[in-house]
Computed example of a mutant assay.
Amino acid sequence: MSSETSGEEAVPPPRTNQRTFLDDVILTFTSPMAWLLVVALILTWSGVAIVLFDLLDYKTLSGNEK
């Protein structure tokens, strides 16, 4: 039977220690390997951006070399 019929107040179940998304992010970035991966990705994509936007121009990519 429900707790309402026995005259007792309904007590919410005790909260379990569940990690939030922010807790997971903080836990992930306490690792040096995670920071190494972030730095490697930034360097890689910076290199891609430099090659794509600085060394190449629109005329070369489109084939119109007038």
Rank of each mutant, 00 (worst) to 15 (best):
M1I: 09
M1V: 14
M1K: 13
M1N: 14
S2E: 15
S3V: 12
S3E: 15
S3P: 02
E4T: 13
T5W: 11
T5S: 13
S6I: 15
S6A: 15
S6G: 05
S6R: 13
G7R: 02
E8K: 10
E8L: 07
E8I: 04
E9Y: 10
E9G: 12
E9V: 06
E9F: 08
E9Q: 12
A10C: 06
V11M: 09
V11L: 06
P12E: 06
P12G: 02
P12D: 06
P13V: 03
P14H: 03
P14C: 00
R15E: 15
T16Q: 12
N17S: 11
R19L: 09
T20D: 07
T20N: 07
T20I: 01
F21L: 06
F21S: 05
F21Q: 05
L22Y: 09
L22K: 08
L22G: 07
D23K: 01
D24C: 04
D24P: 00
D24M: 08
V25G: 02
V25F: 04
I26E: 10
L27Y: 05
F29P: 02
F29W: 04
T30D: 09
T30K: 11
S31A: 05
P32C: 03
M33S: 15
A34H: 03
A34V: 02
W35C: 00
W35D: 03
W35P: 00
L36S: 10
L36D: 10
L37M: 12
L37T: 13
V39Y: 09
V39A: 13
V39I: 14
V39C: 03
A40M: 06
A40V: 03
A40G: 05
L41D: 06
I42L: 08
I42P: 02
L43Q: 08
L43P: 00
W45T: 07
W45K: 04
W45Y: 14
W45N: 05
G47P: 00
G47V: 01
G47Q: 03
V48W: 08
V48T: 06
A49K: 11
I50L: 14
I50Q: 11
I50W: 14
V51S: 09
V51N: 10
V51R: 13
L52H: 14
L52E: 15
F53S: 10
F53G: 12
D54N: 15
D54K: 15
L55M: 10
L56Q: 13
D57P: 00
K59V: 01
T60V: 08
L61W: 04
L61E: 09
L61Q: 09
S62M: 10
G63C: 01
G63H: 00
N64W: 07
E65K: 12
E65P: 00
E65W: 11
K66N: 15
K66Q: 14
